[in-house]
Amino acid sequence: MLDLGWSELLLIGIVALIVVGPKDLPVMFRQLGRFTGKARAMARDFQRAMNEAADEAGVKDVASDLKNATSAKKLGLDKLKDAASEFEKWQPGDAKVAKDGVEKPRGPETAKMTEERAEQARLIRERSAQVASDRIAKEKAAEAAAAETPASEPPAAETPAPETPASDKTT
C-alpha cells in the first residue's frame, strides 16, 4: 500500500507527538486504526462485489476456455510428443517393439512381404555379380585376342586405299 520505512514512521510519530501532544496521541491512533479498518472492509466488499459481477458475466468460463485453449494436453500436443519420442526410438528390424519394450512378432502379411523383398534383393545382387563377371571375362578375352595378333600385320581397318595414277588426273 504505502511504502513507508521505519525512518519515515519515526519522523511521522515525532511530528504527531509535537503537533497533537502526548495527551491526545492515543486517541488519534485509535481513530486512525478505526479509519484503516473501515477502509479495508470497504475494499473487501468492493472486491467481493466485482468478483460476483464477473461470475455473473461468465468471465470465469471465458478464462477457463482460454486456459484450456492454451493447454498442450487439450490441444493434443502431448500425443504428438509421445509419437515423436516413439519415432526417435524406432529401430528397423524383424520385430516390432511395443511401448513396454517387449518385442512382438510381425503379422503374417508383413513377414511374407519382408521375405519376398529379401529374396528380390538377393536375386538382384546375384544378377549384378553375374553381369560384372561376364563383362570382366569379355574384357580379358579382348585383351588376349589383341595380344595374339602379330604386330607386323596392320589391322584390317587401317589398310591404306590404293592411289590413283598421276596421269589420270586432269588439270
Rank of each mutant, 00 (worst) to 15 (best):
1 M>W: 04
1 M>A: 04
7 S>T: 11
8 E>V: 03
9 L>Q: 08
10 L>G: 14
10 L>H: 05
12 I>A: 11
12 I>H: 04
13 G>L: 08
15 V>T: 09
15 V>E: 12
17 L>Q: 15
19 V>F: 09
19 V>G: 09
23 K>D: 13
27 V>M: 07
28 M>V: 09
29 F>I: 01
30 R>H: 09
30 R>I: 01
31 Q>I: 02
34 R>G: 06
34 R>V: 09
34 R>F: 11
34 R>L: 14
37 G>V: 02
37 G>F: 10
39 A>G: 08
41 A>D: 07
44 R>G: 06
44 R>C: 08
46 F>A: 13
47 Q>V: 07
47 Q>F: 02
47 Q>S: 13
48 R>C: 07
49 A>K: 12
50 M>S: 10
50 M>E: 14
50 M>Q: 13
51 N>T: 06
54 A>E: 07
54 A>G: 10
56 E>Y: 00
56 E>I: 05
57 A>P: 00
58 G>V: 04
59 V>S: 05
59 V>Y: 10
59 V>N: 01
60 K>F: 01
60 K>I: 03
61 D>S: 10
62 V>Q: 02
65 D>F: 14
68 N>V: 00
68 N>F: 03
70 T>P: 02
71 S>Y: 02
74 K>V: 04
75 L>T: 05
75 L>R: 15
76 G>A: 08
76 G>L: 03
76 G>R: 07
79 K>D: 04
80 L>Y: 08
82 D>Y: 10
83 A>P: 05
87 F>L: 11
87 F>S: 12
88 E>D: 07
89 K>P: 06
90 W>E: 10
92 P>S: 04
92 P>N: 01
92 P>Q: 04
96 K>H: 15
97 V>G: 08
99 K>T: 03
100 D>W: 00
100 D>H: 00
101 G>P: 02
102 V>P: 01
102 V>E: 13
104 K>N: 05
104 K>Q: 12
105 P>R: 04
107 G>W: 08
109 E>Q: 11
110 T>C: 06
110 T>D: 14
117 R>Y: 05
119 E>H: 09
121 A>T: 02
122 R>S: 05
123 L>F: 01
125 R>D: 13
125 R>A: 15
125 R>C: 03
133 S>A: 15
133 S>R: 11
138 K>F: 06
138 K>P: 00
140 K>A: 14
141 A>F: 06
141 A>Y: 06
141 A>S: 12
147 A>K: 15
149 T>C: 12
157 A>Q: 13
157 A>Y: 09
159 T>L: 13
162 P>T: 00
162 P>K: 03
165 P>T: 05
167 S>D: 12
169 K>E: 05
170 T>V: 00
